[in-house]
Every structure is written in structure tokens, then in C-alpha cells.
Simulated scan of single mutants.
Amino acid sequence: MTRYHRQKGATFERMIADYLAKWVDDRIDRRVKTGAKDRGDIAGLRHMGQRVVLECKNTAKTLLGPWSAEAEVERGNDDALAGLIVHKRHGKGRPEDQWVTLTVGELVALLTASREHYDAE
């Protein structure tokens, strides 16, 4: 990944973190990279008292499968309730216009504040 792409990603992460901090919780911020045990791009996001991992992507190519796998690893690293992907909606510059993608399992985890359904099958 080039320096340009890292900067583009960091700018996107900052935009999302700042928007969430303004409208959800002022403790939300862009997470400092932690190396091998990455815990997502945004820190401080919680739902029903539990951590939620956001993996932010600013790229023209949509790779939901690999991104979802990455979010799941980071969710596990953070012992979080759910892992979501926030990705760039091209042609739209406002943070509130960007896409959020998650699996139905992650949606159930958010709605019930539990991952119990993953062990039930």
C-alpha cells in the first residue's frame, strides 16, 4: 500500500470518527494502529454497553468478503459485540452518506446485544 493510499484511508477514518463523535459519543475517535492484533479503525463505539468494531475502507473496489473476514478478526481481537464495515460511497463526500455493511449475524448481535446465536447452530 502506498503512502497516498494510507493517507486517503486515514482521512476517511478521521471523517467517520469525527462524525460519530459529534452525533453519537464524544469519546469515539480514530484508533491508533496496533500492529498484529488490529482492533478496528474506530475506538470508543459502543452499543448496549458493548464494543463495536468498525473497519473503514476508502477504495473504488468493493471486496466485501475479505473485508468482512478482516472485521471479524478485529472484532475477536477487541472482544467486541459486532464488526461492521464502513466503506466509501463514491460521488458522496459527506460522512453520513457512506455505506455500512454487516452480515445478518452481526445485525442480530447488535439487535440482541448477544452473540449467543452463533453458538446455537
Rank of each mutant, 00 (worst) to 15 (best):
His47Trp: 15
Asp29Asn: 13
Asn58Gly: 02
Met1Ala: 15
Val108Leu: 10
Glu72His: 14
Thr34Met: 10
Arg51Asp: 06
Val32Gly: 13
Arg14Lys: 11
Lys57Val: 00
His90Ile: 09
Ile42Tyr: 07
Gln50Phe: 09
Cys56Gly: 03
Leu20His: 02
Lys8Glu: 12
Val53Gly: 01
Asp29Lys: 11
Ala10Lys: 09
Ala113Leu: 08
Arg14Tyr: 07
Ile16Ala: 10
Val32Asn: 13
Thr2Ala: 11
Lys37Ile: 08
Arg115Glu: 04
Ile28Arg: 00
Thr62Leu: 11
Asp78Leu: 05
Phe12His: 04
Thr103Val: 04
Val86Ile: 13
Ile85Gln: 08
Ala10Trp: 15
Arg46His: 12
Arg3Val: 08
Leu54Ser: 00
Thr112Leu: 12
Met1Tyr: 08
Arg27Leu: 10
Leu102Lys: 05
Lys22Met: 08
Thr34Asn: 06
Arg115Trp: 03
Pro66Gly: 03
Glu116Lys: 15
Lys61Ile: 01
Trp67Asn: 09
Gly93Leu: 07
Arg31Asn: 03
Val86Asp: 06
Thr62Trp: 14
Arg115Thr: 02
Arg51Tyr: 04
Asp78Asn: 15
Arg94Ile: 05
Glu13Lys: 02
Val32Ile: 03
Thr62Gln: 15
Arg115Gly: 06
Ala69Glu: 14
Gly105Glu: 10
Gly83Tyr: 09
Leu81Arg: 05
Lys33His: 10
Glu72Met: 14
Ile16Leu: 15
Arg31Tyr: 02
Glu55Trp: 01
Ala17Asp: 10
Val32Lys: 13
Arg14Met: 14
Ser68Gly: 11
Gln7Cys: 04
Glu121Val: 00
Leu20Arg: 03
Arg31Asp: 12
Asp41Arg: 02
Val108Cys: 00
His90Val: 05
Ala82Val: 02
Gly105Met: 08
Glu116Phe: 12
Gly9Trp: 07
Gly91Glu: 01
Arg30Val: 08
Lys37Pro: 04
Glu74Asn: 01
Lys57His: 07
Lys61Tyr: 06
Ala36Tyr: 12
Ile85Arg: 14
Thr62His: 10
Gly44Ile: 02
Tyr4His: 10
Leu54Met: 05
Arg51His: 11
Asn58Met: 06
Leu45Met: 05
Gly35Leu: 01
Asp119Gly: 06
Val53Thr: 04
Thr62Cys: 10
Cys56Lys: 04
Gly65Ser: 13
Arg39Asn: 03
Ala36Gln: 12
Val73Leu: 07
Trp99Asp: 04
Asp26Met: 08
Val32Met: 15
Leu64Gly: 02
Ala120Lys: 15
Thr103Gly: 04
Lys33Cys: 08
Arg3Asn: 14
Gly40Ile: 04
Ile28Trp: 01
Thr62Tyr: 06
Gly91Arg: 11
Thr59Ile: 12
Arg75Gly: 05
Ala17Arg: 05
His87Lys: 04
Arg46Ala: 11
Glu72Ala: 14
Gly9Ile: 01
Val52Met: 10
Met15Ala: 12
Arg31Cys: 00
Lys88Pro: 06
Thr59Glu: 15
Gly9Lys: 09
Asp79Tyr: 06
Gly44Val: 01
Asn58His: 10
Leu54Phe: 05
Asp41Thr: 00
Ala17Glu: 12
Pro66Phe: 02
Asp119Leu: 00
Pro66Cys: 02
Gln50His: 09
Gln98Lys: 07
Ala109His: 07
Asp79His: 09
Asp78Met: 06
His117Asp: 09
Arg89Cys: 02
Val108Glu: 00
Asp79Gly: 00
Ala69Lys: 12
Thr2Trp: 13
His90Asp: 09
Tyr118Lys: 03
Lys37Tyr: 13
Arg75Gln: 00
Ala10Asp: 12
Met15His: 14
